[in-house]
């Protein structure tokens, strides 16, 4: 059976779409047949992040309403022939699609693809329910901020109520320097509150902004630390045991020495 994975967060702007695009690409780079679905009807973004916005002819709503065959709406990626995007409609809203439509669509796609990644809209209303309905696995994306973690907690509760098994957690936009200064929650703080398994930690990376604007995902850039983090998550989704990146900077020997010196004096 295909892996049908929904990425969701509750809060907007934590990086669901970027994560979906990067994981989809990373899985395709490992030889998987992948389709990424933008379920954010009316506010589509995934096409832009993947640099495919000027190739959209048909969209998700066209498929659901029978104006085209599913195949016709799938957009092939620029680089990877086994990676496809099913874009959202921009001129409609979430009510154009029902959870049953999404289940039927994913069942059909599941015969041809290994992985179906669904980019959920923010919020907990109809759009979220559409995105979650077909999933057999759920990834929660959050950032190490109290507001995002609070919303993630709410989403975890809802996902459990939908009996989608235990969701896994991706912590995005980690800033090691801020954690070192004690200004940001660290990974263990977040995991402690949410009490679910971690599947990935992604450092904050300015190159994501520029690559997103260019429609090129970070996993294509060998020098991008965020890209490496997404590759690792993709490997874990394939069942490999990959160690987590070490993001927290180790204090230098000198500062360790002075640190000790200071604590002794006080």
């Amino acid at each position: 059976m295909a892996h049908i994975i929904t990425l969701t967060s509750g809060k907007g702007g934590v990086g669901k779409t970027t994560t979906t695009a990067n994981l989809g690409t990373a899985l395709a780079m490992q030889g998987q047949r992948v389709v990424v679905i933008d379920a954010d009807i009316g506010l589509r973004n995934l096409d832009v992040v993947m640099g495919l916005e000027n190739r959209i002819v048909y969209d998700l709503v066209d498929v659901v309403e029978g104006r085209c065959r599913t195949r016709q709406a799938l957009i092939k990626d620029k680089r990877f022939p086994e990676l496809f995007l099913l874009p959202a409609a921009q001129t409609r809203d979430k009510d154009a699609v029902s959870p049953d439509d999404m289940v039927a669509l994913c069942t059909e796609l599941g015969r041809e693809f290994d992985f179906i990644l669904i980019d959920s809209p923010a919020g907990i209303e109809g759009g979220f329910k559409n995105a979650i309905a077909p999933a057999n696995q759920v990834l929660i994306v959050t950032t190490p901020e109290m507001s995002a973690v609070r919303d993630a907690d709410r989403i975890v509760g809802l996902v459990e109520a939908y009996e989608k098994g235990h969701p896994k957690l991706i912590i995005n936009r980690i800033k090691p320097q801020m954690i070192a200064r004690g200004d940001m929650m660290d990974t263990s703080d977040v995991v402690e509150i949410l009490a679910i398994d971690l599947i990935g930690i992604v450092p904050d990376d300015e190159s994501i902004v520029t690559s997103t604007n260019r429609g090129e995902v970070a996993v294509l850039d060998r020098n991008s630390l965020a890209g490496r983090a997404f590759h690792n998550i993709a490997s874990r989704l394939l069942g490999n045991d990959v160690p987590f990146l070490v993001l927290e900077e180790k204090p230098s020997v000198l500062s360790q020495f002075f640190g000790r010196f200071r604590t002794r004096r006080t």
Partner: peptide, 22 residues
């Protein structure tokens, strides 16, 4: 017990686990 979840009971409530904000 997560944000948005609610337990109501006519009696005592015992939770093994965290009761999160919300």
């Amino acid at each position: 017990i997560r944000s948005g979840q609610e337990l109501r009971y006519d009696g005592h409530i015992v939770v093994i686990g965290d009761v999160n904000a919300g």
